[in-house]
Amino acid sequence: MELDSLYQEVILDHYKHPLNKKLSPTFTAQVHHVNPSCGDEITLNVNITDGIVTNVSWEGVGCSISQASTSIASDLMTGKNLEEALKIVESFSDLMSSKGTMAGNEDVLEDGVALAGVSKFPARIKCALLGWMAFKDAAIQSSKN
């Protein structure tokens, strides 16, 4: 069924048991992003010290895709250096705009490749990107601070 290409088991797992979904008490930057078309909202904290992402945490409401995607992104970014992290975000953005033609590089995106199917559902791409864009925004703000 076509739905299965959207809702991979990995996604449903992250949705039911999201990672890092509890805001850290301290952060080097905090952002709040909303998806005005469906009302999804997240707040995301990053801690970046000496160019290394030491912690990503978040809180928010949204559909399975946005929640799972944010969970995956937060896990993936932790421990990366800033430059590397932003490259991963870019690679995920490319995957999302691939209209189903890319499978995604598992070495780079890890669980993120489970979201490849989302690129075939134009209305859901924004859901999948919410957490990643929030991270990118926070990372850039943090590096300016």
């Binding site: 076509e2 739905l3 559909c63």
Partner: peptide, 13 residues
């Protein structure tokens, strides 16, 4: 237990 956006997706299917 199901977000409206996900409900809509399944219904559409």
């Amino acid at each position: 237990g199901i977000h409206p956006h996900d409900v809509g997706q399944v219904l559409d299917q």
